[in-house]
Amino acid sequence: SLSVDNKKFWATVESSEHSFEVPIYAETLDEALELAEWQYVPAGFEVTRVRPCVAP
């Protein structure tokens, strides 16, 4: 099958004044980091952490 098993990760994104967490959907932690950097670094943010979303 061609289905992709995307998992939810939380990326911590920082600017000079703010820090916030955004959801990233990817297959692996490395891919989540790449996606977060691709989305947020060009906008002037720094991705400081990516972690798996742990269900309660």
Score class of each variant (00 low, 15 high):
Phe20Gln: 03
Pro42Gly: 11
Leu29Asn: 03
Trp38Tyr: 13
Ser16His: 10
Ala36Phe: 04
Ala32Phe: 02
Ala11Tyr: 02
Tyr40Lys: 03
Gly44Ala: 00
Glu17Trp: 14
Thr48Pro: 03
Asp30Gln: 15
Pro52Gly: 07
Glu37Thr: 09
Glu17Ala: 09
Leu33Cys: 06
Tyr25His: 05
Pro23Cys: 15
Ala11His: 01
Phe20Lys: 04
Ser16Lys: 12
Val50Arg: 00
Leu29Thr: 04
Glu31Ile: 07
Lys7Leu: 08
Leu35Gly: 02
Thr48Ile: 12
Val50Asn: 00
Leu33Thr: 08
Glu46Arg: 11
Glu17Thr: 14
Val4Thr: 12
Trp38Val: 14
Ser16Thr: 09
Glu31Met: 12
Val4Gly: 13
Leu33Val: 09
Pro42Trp: 08
Val50Ile: 13
Ala26Gly: 03
Asp5His: 15
Val4Cys: 15
Asp5Lys: 14
Ala36His: 01
Tyr40Pro: 04
Tyr40Leu: 03
Arg49Pro: 02
Glu21Gln: 07
Glu34Gly: 08
Val13Phe: 04
Val4Asp: 09
Pro52Cys: 05
Ala32Asp: 00
Val41His: 10
Val4Lys: 14
Ile24Cys: 05
Trp38Cys: 09
Glu31Ala: 12
Gly44Gln: 01
Leu2Phe: 10
Val13Asp: 00
Ala32Met: 02
Val22Trp: 03
Ala43Val: 06
Val4Met: 11
Val4Ala: 11
Val47Gly: 01
Pro52Asn: 05
Asn6Glu: 07
His18Val: 13
Ser19Trp: 12
Val13Leu: 13
Asp5Pro: 14
Phe45Val: 03
Glu37Pro: 00
Ala43Asn: 11
Gly44Thr: 00
Cys53Gly: 07
Glu17Arg: 11
Ala32Gly: 01
Glu17Met: 10
Ser1Arg: 10
Asn6Thr: 14
Glu46Ile: 13
Thr28Glu: 02
Lys7Pro: 09
Ser1Cys: 15
Ser1His: 13
Ala32Gln: 00
Thr12Val: 05
Gln39His: 10
Ala32Arg: 00
Val50Trp: 02
Lys8Arg: 09
Trp38Glu: 15
Glu46Asp: 07
Val22Cys: 07
Glu21Ala: 05
Leu2Asn: 10
Ala26Ile: 02
Ala43Glu: 13
Val41Glu: 07
Leu2Ser: 12
Pro52Leu: 13
Pro42Met: 07
Leu29Pro: 05
Asn6Tyr: 14
Val54Trp: 10
Phe9Ala: 00
Ser15Asn: 14
Thr48Trp: 00
His18Gly: 14
Ser19Tyr: 07
Trp38Pro: 03
Phe9Met: 01
Ala55Phe: 11
Pro52Thr: 07
Lys7Cys: 15
Glu37Phe: 09
Trp38Ser: 15
Ala26Ser: 03
Leu33Ser: 05
Val47Phe: 00
Ser1Gln: 11
Val41Gln: 09
Ala32Lys: 01
Glu14Lys: 14
Arg49Gln: 13
Glu31Phe: 06
Arg51Val: 13
Tyr25Ala: 03
Leu29Val: 06
Val54Phe: 12
Pro52Ser: 08
Glu31Arg: 13
Val47Tyr: 00
Ser16Trp: 09
Glu17Pro: 04
His18Ile: 14
Glu14Asn: 08
Thr12Tyr: 06
Phe45Ser: 14
Glu21Val: 09
Ser3Trp: 09
Glu46Met: 08
Ala26Met: 02
His18Gln: 11
Ser3Ile: 12
Lys8Gly: 05
Ser15Cys: 10
Ala55Gln: 10
